[in-house]
Amino acid sequence: MKALVQSSAPPERRVPGDLAMWCFILAELAVFGVFFLVYAVFRWREPALFAAGQRSLDLTLPTLNTLFLLAGSAAMLAAVSRFAEGRQPAGRRALALTMLCGGGFLALKLYELVGKFARGITLSTNDFWMFYLSLTVFHFLHVVLGMVIVAAVWRLARDGRYTPDAMDGVETAAAYWHMVDLVWLVLFALVYVAR
């Protein structure tokens, strides 16, 4: 009977993880979305100022950061698939890898931000720097929260609770993590690269 179901039935549509988390995710996307759009308006009004600011931005570190987050998302997906297969230790290792990648992102980002402050750049320097600092710090805080959530799930997973039919916790954490990555993809392109 299992074979019959496997061959014909597509997986039924279900929300990955807790619906409440998805409501939260949608709210976060709304805030970031509005922020991006306001950035776009300001940039459209002062293209020269924004271009000048972007020229002084190093690209290597932020690119590495993007790679870190993407690796983190890949690790997160691996973690979820492994838990779904009942492979608990492997799943936990993948969660740990996610946190490693996230930690790398945070370290590099911190280094980058400290560098800016050391150069005397503040929120009041000009519009470009105001957006740069607001967006990157705001996103930074979300990466921190993502790390906390993943760490919590990693810890809870120790007692083997995330069996294939009790995956809610892991999937919920994954959803939040992927949102943080998604936002960064847009942020990276908009603030650092699009010039």
Partner: peptide
């Protein structure tokens, strides 16, 4: 990312 990482292709429309 949305399709495969978030897995929304299998989520409610």
């Amino acid at each position: 990312l949305v399709e495969y990482y978030m897995g929304l292709r299998h989520a409610p429309r």
